[in-house]
Nucleic acid binder design. Structure first.
Lengths: 210, 210
DNA sequence: GACTTTGCTGGACAGTTGTCAAGAAATCTT
DNA sequence: AAGATTTCTTGACAACTGTCCAGCAAAGTC
């Protein structure tokens, strides 16, 4: 959130490479907005440019080609997911507090950043067909897995037990529930957040053994 | 599996509507092959026609437009998934036998029908952006959920316990593991099937209470 | 065999796509 | 202020897209 493109009316004088990086970030944010709305298949470079303050030529000035842009977007998006639950993990002093905090943030991001999550699952599916995306997608998956693992081990610690599944398994399970919620949210937004909360809080204890 | 297009060298004389349906099925099978290879985003009607014995004009003779074709494909694909594990469920006489049979079929379909599964997760992601696909995708999800539920309840029955989660939760969990395997299979096919087996067999017992 | 219906072909269409490049504009350097 | 460099605009391009249709071939009907 530190680097937005709107912090200065005129493009602030920044030294060299930093300025290029700023433009890249601004373009990536615009692109992510459009991608989240339309999905990978329906998003063209011109559409991205139209929904931004730039023209379609600029995109090719800062990115080699379309995949380069999308790939950059994925990598940029990664930094937003990394520490989403870190504060909750660090401040919680009981298992319940951790669970409540985690579930709260989870449903919050589900509701408030729906397009981003839609896009994530879209891109992960695309990565199965385009190897150029695979590494970046795998890196994010790794990051998310570590995030879930941090939460689960801390949860076990507070309860006084240990996890009964490894990190990839735990991530796949929670992610399955979350993706179900994201897909369901597109069709019927009303009941989904509560259902997600119920289900995750039902599953979490099953992954810990006293 | 009953209706393939190759069972007669010359188009067998079939009465009226049936013949149309046969052509539809043949086109759908061709389309599914291409879709599974390239994914939704990269598949064009011409590509579908090229990889088949038909010309691109025929597609529009049998389907109103692209979405109509894809939608038909999804619905056709559905019939293949429905009863994949039914035999295992019906013949298993112990929990272990059921688990082994289920896991065997699961890894088998993962390996042998990878493109289909890739496509499924792709299409489910697309359904978040195109409402026209939503109903068909939701129907398949429902079907898969029931399939998992049948397996889990039978598994519980054989163990002498009862499930501790509801059907949607159980499906989301198992599906999370399976999708992880499908995505991972694209990058590194070797170890994935065994990992999937391990993880699912670790999770299954946790969903049953004595 | 003549005629109608059905099935299919192959080309044409208008629109969109990613990519590129020539030059204008803004910025920096001296 | 003049020249050099970076940044951006604009228009063009070839390729590809979904869609449509005029015409042809085959099958069915009388």
């Amino acid at each position: 959130m530190a680097l937005t493109s709107a912090d200065a009316p005129r493009p602030a004088r920044v030294s060299g490479i930093d300025k290029i990086e700023r433009r890249r970030v601004a373009l990536a944010e615009s692109a992510l907005k459009t991608l989240g709305e339309l999905g990978y298949a329906r998003t063209s470079l011109r559409e991205i440019a139209n929904n931004s303050e730039f023209t379609h030529g600029v995109v090719h000035y800062y990115f080699r080609d379309k995949i380069d842009l999308i790939s950059y977007c994925v990598r940029y998006y990664k930094t937003k997911c990394a520490q989403r639950y870190d504060e909750v993990v660090e401040t919680a002093t009981s298992a319940d507090e951790l669970a409540v905090g985690f579930l709260g943030k989870m449903t919050q991001t589900l509701v408030e950043e729906t397009p981003m999550h839609r896009l994530w699952y879209d891109l992960r599916a695309q990565s199965m067909f385009e190897e150029q995306l695979r590494d970046d997608v795998a890196a994010i998956d790794q990051l998310l897995e570590q995030m879930i693992w941090r939460i689960l081990t801390r949860y076990a610690e507070l309860i006084g037990g240990t996890p009964t599944v490894d990190a990839p398994t735990a991530y796949a399970l929670i992610d399955g529930l979350f993706e179900q919620a994201v897909v369901g949210y597109a069709a019927d937004p009303d009941r989904v957040p509560d259902l997600l909360t119920d289900r995750v809080s039902q599953v979490l204890p099953k992954l810990i053994a006293a």
